[in-house]
Amino acid sequence: GIQEIVAMSPELDTYSITKRVKEVLTDNNLGQRLFGESILGLTQGSVSDLLSRPKPWHKLSLKGREPFVRMQLWLNDPHNVEKLRDMKK
């Protein structure tokens, strides 16, 4: 599951990941809330907090790293936007 992926993950640049996620969401007119609930399993508040103030990787616990790994996996998925759009319906 995701825990193994997080444990094996190389250090991620949390700042550039969140910046990229925000760009993709904005460009495709997708909400942070939808993204947070569907992709990260987080509430709106947690998501906007994460996206606006990402902590550096080395300061995060494994649990804290999980959303960033999920974001990275989502960014790597060529169908990420379509999938999210489908969830919106």
Rank of each mutant, 00 (worst) to 15 (best):
T26K: 13
W74M: 00
L75T: 04
T14N: 01
K89R: 08
G41Q: 06
D86M: 08
N29A: 08
T18P: 00
A7H: 11
L34E: 13
P78A: 07
S46H: 08
R70L: 09
K19T: 10
P54E: 01
Q44N: 13
M71G: 01
H79N: 13
V21G: 00
R85P: 01
L34W: 08
N28Y: 10
K59H: 09
S52K: 08
T43R: 11
L84C: 06
L62P: 15
I5G: 09
R65Q: 05
S48D: 15
P78D: 07
M87A: 13
L34C: 07
S16K: 14
S46L: 08
R53V: 08
E11F: 05
P67Y: 05
N80V: 02
T18L: 03
S52M: 13
P54G: 00
D13M: 00
H79V: 06
L42K: 09
L12Y: 04
Q72Y: 11
M71P: 03
I17T: 05
L25C: 00
E4C: 04
K22C: 09
Q72W: 10
K19Q: 10
G45M: 10
K83L: 07
T43Q: 12
I39F: 03
S61A: 05
E11S: 08
D86F: 07
H58L: 05
P67L: 12
S16W: 12
T18Y: 04
E37R: 07
E11L: 04
K19F: 04
L30H: 02
K88A: 13
T14S: 01
D27H: 10
Q44V: 11
L50E: 01
K22H: 05
H79S: 12
V69E: 08
L12A: 03
M8T: 11
K59R: 10
V24C: 08
W57G: 00
D86V: 11
S48Q: 08
G45I: 07
E82W: 06
D77K: 04
K22P: 01
V21F: 01
L60Q: 03
V24N: 02
L50A: 04
Y15M: 15
N80F: 04
N29T: 05
P54M: 04
Q32C: 11
F68P: 00
L75V: 03
L60I: 01
H58F: 13
M71H: 01
P10G: 13
I39L: 02
D13A: 02
G41N: 15
D49C: 08
R20G: 04
P54V: 03
S48M: 11
S38G: 10
N29W: 03
N29V: 03
I2P: 05
Q3K: 11
T26Y: 12
R85L: 15
V21N: 03
D77Q: 05
T14K: 02
L60V: 01
K88G: 09
N29H: 02
E37L: 07
Q32S: 12
D13H: 01
L42Q: 07
E37C: 06
L34A: 09
E66Q: 06
V24W: 02
R53T: 13
L25F: 03
F68R: 00
A7D: 11
Q72E: 09
E4T: 09
L42Y: 06
S52A: 10
D27N: 15
K55F: 06
T14V: 05
S9Q: 09
T43V: 06
Q32K: 10
G36F: 07
P54A: 02
Q3E: 10
V81G: 02
Q32F: 15
S48H: 15
M87S: 13
Q3F: 05
R70A: 06
P67E: 05
M8A: 15
T43K: 14
D13P: 01
T14R: 02
K88D: 12
K63E: 12
K55A: 12
E82Y: 06
S38D: 06
Q32R: 08
K22M: 14
V6H: 08
S48W: 13
S46W: 05
E82C: 08
R85H: 08
N80M: 05
K59V: 08
K22A: 07
F35Q: 00
S48I: 15
L62N: 14
M71S: 02
V47E: 07
L50R: 02
T18R: 00
P56K: 14
S61D: 09
L34P: 03
K63G: 09
S38Y: 15
K55H: 07
V24Q: 05
S9D: 07
D86G: 13
L73S: 09
G64R: 02
K83D: 08
E82K: 14
V21H: 00
V6D: 12
V47W: 08
V21R: 00
K55L: 11
M8Y: 10
L30T: 02
Q44K: 14
S9C: 11
L30Y: 03
T43N: 14
L75Q: 00
L51E: 04
H58K: 11
E23D: 09
K19W: 03
Q44P: 15
K63V: 12
E66L: 06
G41C: 06
P54F: 01
Q32A: 11
E4G: 11
V6W: 04
G41E: 07
G1S: 14
M8I: 06
E4K: 11
G36H: 05
G36E: 09
F35N: 02
T14C: 04
Q32H: 11
Q3A: 08
I5W: 10
P78H: 08
V6M: 09
P56W: 05
I39D: 04
L40I: 02
K88V: 08
N80E: 05
